[in-house]
Design a protein around this nucleic acid. Sequence first.
DNA 1: ACCCAGGCATTGG
DNA 2: CCAATGCATGGG
Length: 270
Amino acid sequence: MPLLFLPEPYAFDLSTERFRAFGPDLANLWHEGGLHRVVGGREVRSDPAPGGVVVEPFDAEIEAEVRTLLGAPFDLNGFYTWARGADPIVRRLVSKLEGLRPPLAPDPFESLVASITAQQVSLFAAFAIRNRLIERFGKRAEHAWSFPTRARLARAKEDELLSLGFSRRKAEYVVGLARSDLDLEALAALPDEEVKERLTAVRGLGAWTADWFLARHLARPRAWPAGDLGLRKAVASFYGDVDVRAVSERFDPFQNVVAHYLLVGARVLG
DNA sequence: ACCCAGGCATTGG
DNA sequence: CCAATGCATGGG
């Protein structure tokens, strides 16, 4: 039985909203009510099911990555317990968005390149450009595509990325990151601040990109992308004119999950 | 034809 | 340390 158990409550459609909100993501593709992604070289489809998610085709090799994709590392029960004593806004977000388990980016290189494409431009533009990158340098499975590998983009020419709509700068960032000697897998063993230092030492990766890497790839509980425009607007809409960096202290140690609840809340609630 | 959008490096004070 | 500037695309 290819059933992946996730702690209750779990709201599949709400949790995967991000993969539909800004147009299709060819590497995390919403198709006929299910989420398609290439895992371990093969396309897998995830569908909601009682007690968790049905994953097909399933084998033990892919389980860890699919669990990561679906946000299993987040301690949602701990968050909900904490939220009972939190402010009314958090309590309302939790009651309206119950079961929202933020998805994660299973691959560090893909996560960073996705962030580079989203720097400064609208997410609609970012997804369009990223999808062209995927079609040019990735591989198609059945429906979804595998994201271009670091090795493939290390061999890419900057001009090839320009023709996909990258700015000259961003083309340099992507190819430079791919060719850099930074060990992306090793970052998982480091504390938050050290991860940020190593990432921001790479040209094209700033504080915003590093914060989202901590939040969406490493699932660090205290990650809080204070510079993110979407988060700033969400905080303003729920809390008014407050200091975005300072307000995060009241969410400790659940800043990451709160950031996601604020962002999704700003999109699906009033 | 504008203007803004989930940044960043670079340049100059 | 902080302010100003250019960047390329998609949507309004």
